[in-house]
Design a protein around this nucleic acid. Structure first.
Lengths: 202, 202
DNA sequence: GTCTATAACGAGATAGAC
DNA sequence: GTCTATCTCGTTATAGAC
């Protein structure tokens, strides 16, 4: 049995490898403070690692680390979305359930943990195009998940494709609105409206 | 007739007062680079003002200036929204037209000028709550505009209130998605879906 | 109101011992 | 792989002449 010599600063991350702890800390901090607002020193501190370790695993520096953090956030929401789509009877209800899940998480964090992909990538179009690409890939993956589910439920190709676009856009915007207003209403209303919109294409 | 002694660096801003030039430069730069990614020196340079002038007009420093920049962005989109609502026959068509307007502006900027309010306020929940409040007020104002128009068109109170929420959330999210994908499709699709959703409440 | 100079601090990144 | 020390540069903000 392997033992971990260092206790990570993050609850529950003690058993993780150093690289993974760094990525998680980066993702969580940039989710709250953005790319420019988060320092590498702060990340290494929170991850229970040294600055040298960060540059050992990410020789490309902050940009490379942030790109990995976005991929981590991508995977997080992919899991939430897949679970919602698998757990409900029809796609419309699944999307509404997904909105409720996001609302709960947002409230639980006292409205500070928004979408990690958006928060990390916004404002970096000129300075760090790598982040933009990783974020665009995340949006595309989420959209693809919804589109596949709609097609599998018998929706026409074009309807499925377009509805998937709006589902992701609306969830993203409603999360932003809910965070700013410190109120889950925007997300819950959006979930119901999306379900209604989807049903109107049956 | 008054003369302006200094030619501002911004095209068309030459005749403006110093304070206004600073606010506009701040709004435009933070729209592209975010709050943390934009420096006061860069703002003063682009505004054709000195650092001393910035602190003269905004003794509260960067936060005070950013708050004013958000209010400026608020007003900008308020104007776009009001024009769209006044120019169309019914609210559904007005919202779709608004989405097209936003898409055009986004493409014209080569996908770098997103929503100034969102870009400036995101990631500041912990460090600058003033910005959050100003951004929340902007969202609420836009929502109020849409809600009033819907009620004036005969929609039920609750429908108008909830639709207004989703209209703003979806436009905001679709602008984000369009910017990341460098493609206006998310916005154009969102505009059509919102019109359809609104019509379903008639 | 405008300008320059600078203080005080933190950032990203690197070197090299262990 | 980990750690510490340090280099260099940019940041916000202030002081004080004009």
């Amino acid at each position: 049995m392997k033992t971990t010599t260092e206790a990570g600063r993050e609850a529950g991350d003690a058993a993780l490898g150093t690289r993974e702890r760094i990525v998680r800390a980066a993702s969580r901090l940039m989710q709250r403070q953005g790319y420019e607002g988060t320092g590498i020193k702060q990340i290494s501190r929170e991850a229970g690692a040294t600055l040298g370790s960060v540059y050992h695993f990410f020789p490309g520096g902050k940009q490379e680390l942030a790109t990995e953090a976005i991929r981590h956030g991508d995977q997080e929401f992919t899991d939430i979305l897949r679970e919602a789509l698998d757990g409900a009877d029809d796609p419309a209800e699944a999307i509404a359930a997904c909105a409720r899940t996001v609302a709960e998480a947002l409230r639980a964090s006292d409205w500070i943990d928004g979408c990690p992909v958006t928060a990390t990538s916004i404002g970096t179009a000129e300075s760090a195009p790598d982040l933009q690409r990783a974020a665009a890939e995340a949006f595309a993956r989420w959209r693809g998940l919804v589109e596949d589910e709609l097609r599998a439920s018998g929706f026409a190709e074009e309807s499925a494709r377009e509805l998937a676009h709006t589902v992701i856009s609306t969830l993203e915007g409603a999360e932003l609105a809910a965070q700013l207003a410190r109120d889950e209403a925007p997300l819950l209303i959006a979930g119901r409206h999306l379900a209604r919109l989807i049903d109107s294409y049956r």
